[in-house]
Write a protein that binds this DNA or RNA. Structure first.
Lengths: 190, 190
DNA sequence: TAAAGACTTAACCGATCGGTACAGAAAAGG
DNA sequence: CCTTTTCTGTACCGATCGGTTAAGTCTTTA
């Protein structure tokens, strides 16, 4: 019963970058093979369901990462204002300050959307809910609306940064957002 | 010299919707043929450059529409505050209150981005410049930053609306944005 | 009405697509 | 060691891809 320490998990980050670069449809098995260094045989061994299983596994890993690094801290943190700032730091890191796009957002705009609709919707719903909770704890009025706005700014910032090939756009937007939230969350501490 | 009143122009809106639905790569000539009712021969008659020429023509038409309906009014309008509100109305109409995505934004996130990089970047640059000018005329500080934020909100709103299959998200974001801008542009008039 | 150009149809091209089959190499367990 | 299981390389499948070609049919102009 030979048992490799699952290399499948090690494949997920690479697959994620491939889907980010090419999208789901255009990420052909040949480019996946080239960039992972694996032949079709190996790929179908790890992912019998083919490309669709690969993408679902990548989305699952993204969900897991955000749940651990972003959503749960937002939900269980102590100081709501600090938690929200920590979220912005984590987000800036994850998206490499605007150099990396959001795979979930990109899939939402692509024609493969329906295939992953549940995971895509769930990702944003969980994020908004966790953030709205923190905003409510911080005493903000209309936490749901504000959380929605924050998510839109992040996603839109990634779109603009990519569209204009200028990652700084994302950084600037996060900085403005941070200033605005600070003002609203801790009006006396600036 | 038989000369049809250019049906090529009539094709562009259909092609736009096809690219919105499928993206560039996945919009195969067979689906384009099916939805336009034209065979490959006809398509290549109108667009000798194939899919790429079709997409470029669609982007050109989008540029033209926004230039006429959004950018120029922003630049040449009289009442800056009213012009900005008119922009939001036009944008809400164009994107069908969140039911329609932004093709330019979608292409920016897809792997076909490089192919259309110049047109994509130009679209957002022109928009931001026109909006920043109006914001400056309205007396706002940091008009460039605010314009960037408005564009990000719009693009992010379209991503979220599609991702969660809930067009109302876009409408809500536009309403919040309108309220915020009103407050800032005409503080005494609410 | 007849020539000319605008448009269409349909067969065809090589390349690549996602996916499968299967034999063999590598590694682990006994 | 030998068996068992995991993993890999390669050849192959039918389907579809974007694009080309050539022969035709319309439609307009002269």
């Amino acid at each position: 019963m030979a048992r490799r320490i699952s290399e499948r998990a090690d494949l997920l980050p690479v697959l994620g970058e491939i889907f980010r670069d090419h999208g789901f449809e255009a990420a052909s098995l040949s480019v996946i093979g080239a960039r992972t260094g694996l032949g079709k045989g190996s790929l179908y061994h790890f992912f019998p369901g083919g490309k669709e299983e690969m993408a679902k596994a990548v989305l699952d890993e993204i969900d897991r990462w955000f749940e651990n690094e972003v959503f749960r801290p937002l939900r269980e943190g102590g100081n709501a204002a600090a938690d929200i700032e920590a979220m912005l730091v984590a987000v800036d890191g994850y998206f490499r300050s605007g150099h990396r796009i959001c795979l979930v957002g990109a899939l939402a705009l692509a024609d493969s959307r329906e295939r992953f609709a549940a995971q895509i919707a769930g990702y944003f719903a969980a994020w908004q809910e966790a953030l709205a909770g923190a905003l409510a704890r911080a005493g903000r009025a209309d936490p749901d609306g504000l959380a929605e706005e924050v998510l839109a700014l992040i996603q839109g910032g990634l779109v603009l940064a990519r569209a204009r090939d200028e990652a700084d756009i994302f950084t600037r937007l996060l900085a403005r957002l941070l200033a605005r939230l600070r003002l609203k969350l801790r009006p006396a501490s600036h």
